[in-house]
Design a binder for these strands. Structure first.
Lengths: 230, 230
DNA sequence: CGGTGGCCTTGCGCTGGCGCAACGACGCGC
DNA sequence: GCGCGTCGTTGCGCCAGCGCAAGGCCACCG
């Protein structure tokens, strides 16, 4: 049985032999999710470690008052729940499929066994986590120092890196996102997002149709992201 | 040679026998820092893993433009640099002593050897890191939703947890911090911090002398922190 | 003891961006 | 084709909080 490419290329398996990869994948079960279904709920005990085979997840944190924070998106080849499944803390976040998705899942026990056999993977998981940490700190820094314009530009560029598709006229952010979601990611309101995007659209920097955004000039967006103007 | 108490109690060594602890500490070297000296600089290769024996560190992230973000403080018994020392990424942050400090240091190589012998420690490190992640996300959420008042109250309460000392009239934040530092931690300006603290002082919620803050009513501060008023 | 430098306070004017309200566009189901 | 629900746009008023500028307090030093 051939292993699907995205899993082969997952950074989680960096430095492993093909045999070791097979060993991991042989122990996994498959979970399929419909659009909108939830994989893990904040507060529930973390029983599994997941890897996205195909699809896309939205990771949320819910506050006591019910407001939600979009933590990140998880695409093909990316892991979810690695660290918590090792300790015995509950999931600190909720993960929901934003499109039909197929996951590979390992139980805590399999994970422990496999990590003991191939310790390189735990280093890879930590590396992944360190990257998320850097991301989170970048967000904090931007929120405390940058104005809305640059922050929104950053958000667009980050999304382009995470789920951008090459397109004849630029880079298309392949995930449909509402204005509210852009606002949540940027730390502003849907009104300001709407106003700013329409302004940039008239300037020719990008193009929006429905919930999709096509970035037409990465350099100029990077310029905005780096400056303190919008 | 008796092991200093703060290290004994470090969460990093949870689940270890006394002998295993001794094994770790026997491999460590001691580093002493004067006030203001820097232990690790952002961008430098991460060669060591540290544990604070006594003292206090300020962890900063510097932006390209030179603005600095206070990431966290590290007190006695707490680790620094655990994850990066495992991978081969450079330090993502700078750590500076805010008072005379004594550290224990392990090289990458010792760390790898010791972790192989006592894998529980890597789980402990990950747990620690997960806590920092939660902290960072809490900060992001607060910055995007809460007003300055509640955020500042949160900051004070967090500091009280990290380095609070019982005091006949309340809890004293044992670290001297400038208004600018409170502002950096809260995501506001020194002006607003000053105004808010003086207001709370007249209300009897707290008392400031020099750079020290004495919290006199945790319940009322928690109330402010949780509401959307100030 | 007077000077110097670092930190804190506070009055004041200004504005970025929030958020209501009203309306428009689009897709979907019946 | 019509109605309904979701999402996006935009005019407008408003205010939280920023940041300058001026002044005060305090510690430290020669």
């Amino acid at each position: 049985m051939p292993v699907p490419p995205p899993l082969q290329r997952s950074r989680i398996f960096d430095g492993l032999t093909d045999a070791e990869r097979e060993q991991w994948l042989g122990r996994a079960t498959r979970v399929t999710l419909k659009r909108g279904e939830t994989l893990a709920r904040q507060g529930e005990p973390a029983r599994h470690f997941y890897l996205v085979e195909t699809g896309f997840l939205k990771v949320l944190q819910l506050t006591v008052e019910g407001t939600e924070l979009i933590v990140r998106f998880v695409g093909a080849g990316e892991p979810f729940g690695g660290v918590v499944a090792l300790g015995n803390a509950p999931y600190p976040v909720t993960a929901t499929a934003t499109q039909p998705s197929v996951m590979r899942a390992w139980t805590r026990e399999s994970l422990a066994t496999l990590l003991a056999a191939t310790p390189q993977v735990s280093v890879n998981i930590m590396r992944e986590m360190a990257a998320h940490m850097t991301d989170a700190l970048t967000r904090v820094r931007e929120l405390t120092t940058a104005r809305v314009g640059p922050r929104l530009a950053q958000t667009l560029l980050r999304l382009a890196r995470q789920c951008g598709e090459r397109h004849p006229e630029g880079v298309l952010i392949s995930q449909p996102l509402t204005r509210q979601e852009f606002a949540d990611l940027t730390g502003t309101t849907l009104y300001t997002v709407s106003r700013t995007l329409t302004k940039w659209e008239t300037m020719g920097l990008l193009q929006t149709r429905q919930r999709l955004v096509l970035l037409r000039s990465l350099p100029r967006l990077e310029e905005i992201a780096g400056s303190d103007e919008d």
